[in-house]
């Protein structure tokens, strides 16, 4: 049963402290430390920055005396929960869950008692849970970072959050989760096809970098603009960013062309469902007896 596969996989993951540290805690801790350091550095150079007409507006805003609204900051952070650093480190956990059994040959023990699709879907469910926990920790880290910033710049705190903000928070968080799952889905396919942890780690990374740069650097000279079919289709990360802009509203949403959302959803569904279906189909007919 699927539930058995989930329980077993979750139990095993719960015992792997290394996986937890790298995939869940490392990125938030690093971002918290970096955020605190940058706040102190900016504060030390506050006078010089205030006098600089070319200083980025984000810095000026950071140093403003206005209250820091933690509710709004949380909504903004929800849209940033699938940033490159988070993706990179969650990928470690996902690859370990997806490719770990090949390292330890445990398929021989567990595959006799449950269907193979159930076992793979169990792993998928556990990676989804791991991603949710990582997002929560990242959100807490973001809030702590905001508190450090408020303390450094002696800003007062506020908390405003209406129903619209709550809806926006969950939509942005949901899109961030979707981005993480879509990104790690290639690790699932690579793990099943190659039985290698390293390949499961590097295929999504290389592909992700290619997907990021192709629509910006390679395709425009060939006549494919960033909102063209091809550009959106090969870049699911960009597609999710466009949908996040729509959720944020305002100027960001206005910049998204009308035809983009449909193309974006098609791109996301293709890059999420096809690798998963391919992995299950491949795994179902795989000879698990070989090293």
């Amino acid at each position: 049963m699927w539930a058995d596969a989930i329980r077993a996989e979750a139990f095993r993951l719960s015992k792997s402290r290394t996986t937890w540290f790298w995939s869940v805690f490392f990125a938030p801790i690093l971002m918290l430390i970096m955020g605190a350091i940058s706040s102190f550095v900016i504060d030390a150079n506050a006078t010089k920055l205030a006098a600089d007409p070319e200083a980025p507006p984000e810095l000026t805003q950071m140093m403003a005396a206005a209250p820091l609204d933690l509710g709004q900051a949380m909504v903004a952070n929800a849209g940033n929960l699938s940033n490159a650093l988070v993706l990179l480190f969650i990928l470690i956990g996902a690859a370990t869950v997806y490719a770990g059994d090949y390292r330890w040959e445990t398929w021989r023990l567990i595959s006799a008692r449950n269907t193979r699709p159930n076992q793979l879907l169990g792993k998928l469910a556990v990676v989804t849970g791991l991603s949710l926990v990582a997002m929560l920790v990242m959100l807490i880290s973001g809030t702590l970072s905001d508190l450090v910033q408020a303390a450094v710049f002696e800003r007062s705190l506020a908390f405003t959050l209406d129903a619209g903000d709550v809806g926006q928070f969950f939509l942005l968080a949901g899109l961030s989760l979707l981005r993480i799952l879509q990104f790690t889905m290639m690790a699932l396919l690579a793990a099943v096809m190659t039985r290698s942890l390293m390949v499961a780690l590097f295929v999504p990374l290389v592909l992700g970098i290619a997907q990021f740069f192709l629509p910006m650097q390679v395709l425009p000279p060939m006549g494919f603009m960033p909102d063209s079919w091809l550009s959106i289709l090969i870049n699911p990360g960009g597609a999710i960013d466009a949908l996040k802009d729509l959720v944020r509203g305002g100027e960001a949403a206005a910049a998204v062309a009308d035809h983009v959302p449909v193309r974006a959803w098609i791109s996301i569904v293709l890059w999420t469902v096809l690798p998963a279906a391919g992995a299950i189909a491949w795994f179902n007919r795989q000879d698990l007896s070989k090293e």
């Binding site: 095993r12 015992k15 040959e105």
Partner: peptide, 14 residues
């Protein structure tokens, strides 16, 4: 049915 095929290997952290 239970089985053990060759020398089994398990997650080393368990």
């Amino acid at each position: 049915m239970g089985s053990m095929i060759e020398t089994p290997r398990y997650p080393p952290y368990m």
